[in-house]
Structures are given as C-alpha cells and as structure tokens.
Simulated scan of single mutants.
Amino acid sequence: MATIRKRGQAWQVQVRRDGFPPITKSFRSKADADGWARETERQIERGELSGQGRSANRLTVGALLQRYEAEVTSRKRGRKFEASRIRTFLRSPLANVAAHRLSAQMVAAYRDERLKTVSGETVRRELTVLRHCIEIGRKEWGAPFAGNPVRQITLPSPSKVRGHRLPEGAEASLMTALTRTRVWYLRPLIMLALETGMRRGELLALEWTNIDLKARLAILTTSKNGHGRSIPLTPRAIAIISEIEVRDIRLFPVNANAVRLSWERLRKRAGLGNVKLHSMRHEAISRMFELGLSIPEVSLVSGHRTLSCLQRYTHIKPENVAEKLARLSVRSE
C-alpha cells in the first residue's frame, strides 16, 4: 500500500509491497503524489516493476550471477560446467551492466560476439543459464527486471545429435586395438558401455555394492538427470563384471580425464576417425530397439525421461528394418 506524508513543502510517497523494497518519491502537490502512487501500484500488480529502488538499481548482472552460482548452481550435479559458463559471463562487459538496464539488444550483442569464437551450442547453453538466473532473480529475489531479456531474443539452434552408431567394422577394430593396450580398464569399460548403454560418468561412479548379480542389476543411485535407475544386466555384461579385479570400492577407480586420454589413443590406433566414446551409448540403445525391446523398456535402461531425448539416441539401420519386414512377410504367407 502507499503512504503519503507532508514533509515541509513537499508530499512524500512511499509504496510498500511484499517482495519489493520500498519505493519512495516526493512531489510538490498531493494530487501528483496520489496519481504516482496509484500508477506505481498498478505497475507492480501488472508485473511491470520488479524490486525497484536504489538498492535494487545498483544490482549488476554480474552480482546476480554470483548469487545464482552460490545458491543455485552449487546444488546441481553439473555445477562444474555451469560455474564455467558463469565465469565466462563475469569476464564479459555484460557483467557490469545494471540489472534494471539489461536489454534484449545487449543480450543479442553478447550472443553475436560469442558466436564469432565458439559454437552455437556453447552460446545456447550460456544463455540458458542467464535466462534461468534472471527468472529466479525476478521471481524470488526481487531483482529489477520487468521481463526476461533472454526470452526476447533468438537463441542459436540446438546442435545436431552429438553421437552416432559405430561404423561398419568399428567394433571389430576396437576389439583388435584393445588387445594391444596396457590400460586394464578400457576393454571392460567399453564392453559394458556397449552392453548397458551407460554413460561414462555412470560407469566410473559404479561401485561394487551397486552390483546385484543375483537379480542381474546394476543400481545407479543418481545419474545425469538427477534420477537413479536400475539397469538390467545381460549375460555378457555379467561375464564382463565378473572378470574385473576388485581394486577399490568402484569398479573403475580412475578419473574421467584419464579415460578420455586413453580413449583418444585407442581410437587413433583403431583408425576410427572421429568416433566418440559416447557413441557406445548410441550403439547400445539402437541395438536394444533392434532386439525388439519396447520404448518403456529401453527408457528404463537408458534413463531417458522423454521420448524426444530417447529418439536422439536411436539410429535404426534401414537394412535391419528391411530384413525384419522380410521375415514378417514370410510368416504371413
């Protein structure tokens, strides 16, 4: 509500609302003070004002991002990557802009400048962080945004599917190259990825206590999307796990960078060009469909929670479909 007081020769108005710092202004006439108070309250109700006031107007985009990193990013599983994106913003001129002055044109200028040096997907992910930061700021922290400038611009298009299936003969080349490596964990890691469709991080986090051979399950307490799941183990996967020597509480007590470097050396030795370790997941999920598993069954194994995400990992070979149709045609005759 608005409070109007006579102070000397002026009329002072103070508008107070829950979630907003007090907004104060002085006028020469009471009629002007009344009119400003009513208009200010209408703007707050319509969402056109958000946390205005001297203290709010001193808030910079950089300060808002730092609070977001401390209170929101720090609780995420991908905090390391998101913190890196926030540091990129903090090094940019955008960080020094007063939050209430941030415009869609400024965000678009940041986008265009970044696109000169990094991929569209990188810029898209950075702007997604800024967009969510502004939403939290304006809805929960009283940050002075009438709207969200990031929502007013066009984001770079999403990247194409990050991985693909293994090329013809690639698995045989991998197995041959694995016989010539001294890195003990590469063979079981790659074979388990092909059998289970598990991500690299999930395999590296897998502990012996997560393995239930009697129930034929690998139990993940958490994953990339924050949800745990139980992965059915094939007979081949069980055989691979049974052959791994217990060295630690984890099946693979190595870090992600060591795996990355070992994979790069193996990939070159196998002559696989740009094939990524993540391609094992694409291959595994595609094979599950070709074996006849249903969408819910494959989702249970892969951990995808939406059909659109699952489809990005599914690459059915047309020749396999043709062969299946031929078999069905024979049965129907």
Score class of each variant (00 low, 15 high):
130 L>Y: 08
209 T>N: 14
136 I>E: 13
98 A>E: 14
135 E>N: 15
212 D>K: 13
157 S>M: 15
40 T>R: 04
104 A>Y: 01
316 I>E: 10
307 L>I: 15
312 R>Q: 12
278 H>L: 13
1 M>N: 06
206 L>C: 06
325 L>Y: 14
281 R>I: 13
229 R>W: 08
205 A>K: 07
41 E>V: 11
186 L>I: 04
148 N>G: 08
127 L>M: 02
190 I>W: 02
77 R>K: 13
167 P>F: 02
332 S>T: 07
184 W>V: 12
39 E>H: 12
272 L>F: 05
34 D>C: 13
316 I>R: 07
119 S>T: 14
139 K>Y: 07
177 A>K: 11
130 L>A: 04
75 R>E: 14
27 F>G: 06
324 K>S: 15
268 K>M: 10
245 E>W: 04
256 A>M: 03
299 S>P: 01
221 T>P: 00
330 V>P: 02
199 R>C: 00
159 S>D: 15
262 S>C: 09
177 A>F: 06
251 L>S: 00
113 E>C: 11
203 L>C: 11
65 L>T: 09
67 R>G: 05
157 S>N: 15
273 G>S: 03
133 C>M: 09
19 G>E: 02
90 L>D: 05
33 A>I: 11
86 I>E: 03
47 G>Q: 03
173 S>M: 06
144 P>M: 06
11 W>C: 05
115 L>T: 09
164 H>D: 15
71 E>P: 00
29 S>R: 12
267 R>W: 04
171 E>F: 01
74 S>T: 09
124 R>Q: 10
81 F>Y: 13
157 S>H: 15
88 T>E: 12
98 A>N: 11
58 R>W: 02
225 N>Y: 08
291 L>I: 12
302 S>E: 12
144 P>L: 03
286 S>P: 11
34 D>M: 14
284 A>N: 07
133 C>R: 02
8 G>H: 04
220 L>C: 04
188 P>C: 11
315 H>P: 07
127 L>Q: 07
2 A>Q: 01
134 I>P: 05
104 A>I: 03
